[in-house]
Design a binder for these strands. Structure first.
Length: 269
DNA sequence: AACCACTCCAACCGCGCGATC
DNA sequence: TGATCGCGCGGTTGGAGTGGT
């Protein structure tokens, strides 16, 4: 048996919202709030709409703090950064962009940014090529993420704190979003990535990193026996660099363990 | 002018999760 | 402890708009 519908679809209006409906919903929410119950709201407000539809309309369009219009380059870079870090977590990505909604960001990514990325990836500066055929580099920069890795990554910061240079680098971040990926040396592969997007103060002095753009990048790879890691540094030409490194044996095993926004930590703990 | 292909984005859908009973 | 409910999320769809032929 399937899930019960959230509303009686036969008795609710669907499709585009009329200006009158918008006005009714806006006036009601501004006057009474949502009451914490979107399902009951349309009836109280006198709308023949599904509660979910009302919620969506309010959140994506009617809210007073919504920012409409084109995305800035800075917003582009934040989206790239976060998408590479955590994939299609649109709600979180949107939360880092004041006035933007998850739907906006998602649409923008699917219609513009993805194409922009693919279009320019052909001229990106690849300093190292993918050698393992099991990895699909067409999906870059959407790194595969093992959700189970988050717990370890955020609960154990000892590796981070034992590395003053890395810590220093992570503290000097532009957006508060610079990340480091640590991979388990016990699995005979390890690497560390430090990348910054837009930050002018990041310091990666521990290694002579390959500077592929104004944005510095460092890629560390261990020389453990049997190590099969491959690293990439990329500059997609958006006014910022997108630096990617990863290591793997059979399974991609990427664990963010940098200093990140507390809300990210809360989300994955 | 008509048709077609493509883009963009608002809206819908179904699912997972947490809260509550 | 399991069932139910509502919220929030990501994926998908459909239609309006636009550009090319």
């Amino acid at each position: 048996m399937g899930r019960a519908p959230c509303c009686d679809k036969a008795n609710v209006k669907r499709g585009p919202w009329s200006p009158d409906e918008d006005e009714t919903l806006k006036r009601y929410v501004e006057t009474h709030g949502t009451g914490g119950n979107w399902i009951a709201l349309p009836q109280k407000a006198g709308l023949r709409r599904c509660g979910k539809s009302c919620r969506l309309r309010w959140l994506n369009y009617l809210r007073p703090d919504i920012k409409h219009g084109g995305f800035t380059e800075e917003e582009d870079s934040i989206i790239y950064n976060l998408y590479g870090e955590m994939g299609s977590r649109w709600s979180f990505i949107a939360s880092q962009l004041p006035g933007r909604t998850d739907n906006d960001v998602k649409n923008y990514w699917n219609t513009k940014l993805k194409k922009k990325l693919l279009g320019s990836s052909g001229k990106s500066n690849l300093t190292t090529t993918i050698t393992n055929p099991t990895y699909n580099n067409n999906s870059l920069p959407c790194l595969p993420i093992n959700p189970d890795a988050y717990d370890l990554a955020f609960s154990d910061s000892s590796q981070l704190t034992q590395n003053p240079t890395m810590l220093s680098s992570l503290n000097n971040i532009g957006y508060g979003l610079t990340q480091a990926y640590g991979l388990d040396p016990s699995l005979q592969h390890s690497s560390m990535i430090m990348s910054d997007f837009g930050s002018k103060s990041s310091s990666h002095s521990a290694e002579n990193s390959s500077n592929i753009s104004d944005s510095s990048a460092a890629y560390f790879a261990s020389s453990l026996p049997g190590n099969t890691e491959t690293g990439i540094m990329m500059d997609f030409g958006f006014g910022f660099s997108y630096d990617i490194g990863f290591a793997y044996d059979d399974d991609i095993d990427i664990k963010p363990q940098g200093v990140v926004n507390q809300s990210v930590i809360n989300q994955y703990q």
